[in-house]
């Protein structure tokens, strides 16, 4: 990891290209889970270098390498485009941020959902649409699947992946969300983070980005 970071500082462009090549390889091998992990890693790395650039933020956010709404809002569009592009190509438009954004926008436009309901029993329809919700009423509805319960193949619902960027949350936060130190797994979906990522994707879709 450290070596990787040093390397990326020395040759950021070529490192970026190499990472993307690796992602492409994984995706074409249908190794969806490794590809999802690499995607989450690349996003975390971007957040790290972002925090390095602004030390003031780094101190405040000592939950390091985490995708919070603030850090998501500052993710480089170039990276998001590159990741999205490879996911879409490999999955034939089945997976990727753009697909997720499309679903999100459609759901918001068509279904009546009030995110301010503060009713934890009512999950966000997007979560069920992309198949992230716990299928069994093991606990009251509205909880997310454990990460390893996700489907890592093209039979999964549209927009099912990438997902790890959403599941990776610190332990305490996981507990707050109702999980068992399992990230988002078995917890309520953090709608602010979800919205932040999809808003970021939408903003990056503006022409010229």
């Amino acid at each position: 990891m450290l070596a990787n970071r040093l390397h990326s500082q020395l040759e950021p462009q070529s490192q970026f290209a190499a990472d993307l090549d690796e992602l492409s390889l994984l995706l074409h091998d249908d190794d969806w889970i490794s590809a999802d992990r690499l995607t989450a890693t690349l996003l975390r790395q971007a957040v790290e270098s972002q925090l390095q650039n602004s030390p003031a933020q780094q101190q405040r956010a000592n939950r390091r390498s985490l995708l919070t709404p603030e850090t998501i809002a500052a993710l480089p569009c170039q990276l998001l485009h590159a990741l999205d592009d490879r996911w879409q190509q490999a999955s034939g438009g089945h997976f990727g941020f753009s697909v997720q954004l499309q679903i999100y926008d459609e759901i918001l436009a068509t279904t009546e959902f009030d995110p301010s309901l503060r009713n934890w029993m009512t999950p966000h329809p997007f979560l069920s649409e992309v198949g992230w919700l716990m299928p069994l009423p093991l606990r009251p509805v509205g909880f997310l699947k454990f990460y390893n319960w996700l489907e890592f193949d093209l039979d999964a619902p549209m927009g099912h992946l990438p997902a790890l960027w959403y599941w990776q949350v610190p332990g305490l936060y996981s507990l707050q969300m109702g999980g068992f130190l399992t990230g988002q797994g078995a917890g309520f979906g953090d709608l602010a983070r979800l919205d932040a990522m999809l808003l970021r994707i939408a903003r990056c879709h503006q022409p010229g980005q």
Partner: peptide
């Protein structure tokens, strides 16, 4: 000026 617009 907001990173996210929902749920708040």
């Amino acid at each position: 000026g907001c990173p996210s617009l929902s749920p708040r």
